[in-house]
């Protein structure tokens, strides 16, 4: 897909927004999703993300395009980690740039919500007792109808 807006990264996410900031920019909202030390009451020590890259990048890019149109954004981007992450590491970053803060905040929230619901990425958690499990309690995966 031309003009990809959603990316997977096997390396730590320590980056500035990967797009030029236009002079009409009034608000840039950045979201960092971070690996938490617990889930559903169980102590998490690390987790591993695996993705279906071709479809993840396509579906993720569709989500960002929809948000750009719906919230009249100037730019938007999302990067999601793959591989093993320790507690405290950034798992996903979203940037939403708009003329005003209302659109930027709303778009950032909509993008992360849709990414969690629609993009084929999976998470295997390792708990402090050594037990591992694939997290399957969230969503069924299919895209919402446009």
């Amino acid at each position: 897909m031309a003009d990809q807006l959603f990316f997977l990264s096997a390396r730590p996410l320590e980056m500035a927004p990967p797009f030029a900031l236009p002079p009409s920019l009034g608000a840039l909202v950045t979201f960092d999703g971070v690996v938490r030390d617990n889930n559903m009451g169980k102590p998490v020590v690390r987790l591993e993300y695996t993705a279906y890259p071709a479809l993840a990048e396509r579906e993720g890019t569709r989500i960002l395009r929809e948000a750009i149109a719906r919230f009249t954004l100037l730019a938007a981007c999302c990067v999601h980690r793959t591989g093993v992450l320790e507690v405290g590491e950034v798992a996903v970053k979203v940037w939403a740039a708009a003329a005003h803060r209302g659109e930027a905040f709303a778009a950032c929230q909509a993008i992360i919500d849709q990414v969690k619901e629609r993009v084929p990425i999976w998470k295997r958690e390792t708990y402090s007792d050594g037990e591992q499990t694939w997290v399957t309690c969230q969503h069924a995966g299919p895209p919402a109808s446009p």
Partner: peptide
Amino acid sequence: CPAVNDEFCAWERPLLPGDHVVFIPPVAGG
């Protein structure tokens, strides 16, 4: 959720020779 040739599809989509099929488990990104 089924996907064929790197796109989500309906269960009703008939398979064709050479198709690349993925059965997508519940996703858990973010």
